[in-house]
Simulated assay, not measured.
Amino acid sequence: MPPALAQVVEDFNDLEIPDRLQLLLEFSDGLPPLPQRYAEHPELLEPVPECQSPIFLHVEVEGDDGDAVVHLYFSAPPEAPTTRGFAGILHEGLDGLSAAEVLAVPMDFTDHLGLGEAVSMLRLRGMAAMLFRIKRQVQEKMAG
């Protein structure tokens, strides 16, 4: 697991369950706004229908195979703090990493956050779906 994402997992596991929810809300508040180039063209973002709230994402990969860097962009409404929080975690843990590092993230990393007792499994599956789409977009951009 990349160091930034491992730190997020550690931060969650250092807290009691109610405090984990508070940290999730902090990640929600910390999600960067969508850049204008995507805000004006929402059709460029991919929906994640597995999430209970509407969320859209886009992945950019800059550079060549050996030094390709991944940038993540999310659009989620403020009235969906859990979904925004999950997007914030992924942004914090993955944005700016190499494509290889992003692709190496285990799909079950969401299980390690310790949120299973705090949020529904349906919500955690939504976060896993975000990660799946991120990895798929990275693979597609690296291939083509």
Results as ranks from 00 to 15, higher is better:
Pro3Phe: 04
Pro3Leu: 08
Pro3Lys: 12
Pro3Trp: 03
Ala4Phe: 05
Leu5Thr: 12
Ala6Leu: 10
Gln7Thr: 08
Glu10Cys: 02
Asp11Thr: 06
Asp11Arg: 13
Asp11Gly: 06
Phe12Lys: 10
Asn13Cys: 14
Asn13Gly: 12
Asn13Leu: 14
Asp14Gly: 01
Asp14Trp: 01
Leu15Ile: 00
Glu16Cys: 10
Glu16Gly: 10
Asp19Asn: 13
Arg20Met: 05
Gln22Met: 03
Leu23Glu: 09
Leu23Met: 12
Leu23Thr: 04
Leu24His: 08
Leu24Lys: 05
Phe27Val: 03
Ser28Thr: 10
Ser28Val: 04
Gly30Val: 05
Gly30Thr: 04
Gly30Leu: 12
Pro32Arg: 01
Pro33Cys: 04
Pro33Ala: 15
Gln36Phe: 03
Ala39Arg: 15
Ala39Met: 09
Glu40Trp: 00
Glu40Ile: 02
His41Asp: 15
Pro42Met: 11
Glu43Thr: 01
Glu43Phe: 00
Glu43Ile: 00
Leu45Ile: 03
Pro47Gly: 00
Pro47Arg: 05
Val48Ser: 02
Pro49Lys: 01
Pro49Ile: 08
Pro49Val: 12
Glu50Ile: 01
Glu50Asp: 05
Glu50Ser: 08
Cys51Val: 09
Gln52Ala: 07
Ser53Tyr: 12
Ile55Arg: 03
Leu57Gly: 13
Leu57Ser: 11
Val59Trp: 12
Val61Ser: 06
Val61Thr: 08
Glu62Val: 10
Asp64Thr: 09
Asp64Asn: 07
Asp65Met: 06
Gly66Thr: 07
Ala68Arg: 05
Val69Met: 11
Val70Met: 04
Leu72Met: 12
Tyr73Gln: 08
Phe74Ser: 12
Ala76Met: 04
Ala76His: 06
Ala76Cys: 14
Pro77Lys: 13
Pro77Gln: 11
Pro77Ala: 10
Pro78Ser: 14
Pro78Ile: 09
Glu79Thr: 13
Glu79Gly: 04
Ala80Lys: 05
Pro81Asp: 08
Pro81Lys: 05
Pro81Thr: 07
Thr83Pro: 08
Arg84Asn: 04
Gly85Ser: 09
Gly85Gln: 02
Ala87Asn: 06
Gly88Glu: 03
Ile89Arg: 06
Ile89Ser: 01
Gly93Ala: 07
Asp95Lys: 03
Asp95Pro: 11
Asp95Arg: 06
Gly96Pro: 02
Leu97Asn: 00
Ser98Leu: 09
Ala99Gln: 00
Ala99Phe: 10
Ala100Asp: 15
Ala100Tyr: 03
Glu101Thr: 07
Val102Ser: 01
Leu103Ala: 08
Leu103Gln: 11
Leu103Phe: 09
Ala104Thr: 07
Ala104Cys: 10
Ala104Gly: 11
Val105Tyr: 10
Val105Lys: 06
Val105Gln: 10
Pro106Ile: 03
Thr110Ile: 14
Thr110Ala: 15
Asp111Gly: 11
Asp111Val: 14
Leu113Thr: 00
Gly114Ile: 00
Glu117Ala: 04
Ala118Val: 12
Val119Glu: 07
Leu122Thr: 14
Leu124Met: 09
Gly126Arg: 03
Gly126Asn: 04
Met127Glu: 14
Met127Ala: 15
Ala128Lys: 11
Ala128Gly: 14
Ala129His: 01
Ala129Asp: 02
Phe132Met: 05
Phe132Gly: 04
Phe132Ser: 09
Ile134Phe: 01
Arg136Glu: 14
Gln137Pro: 04
Gln139Asp: 10
Gln139Glu: 14
Glu140His: 02
Lys141Gly: 01
Lys141Phe: 08
Lys141Met: 11
Met142Tyr: 09
Met142Ala: 04
Met142Cys: 08
Ala143Trp: 00
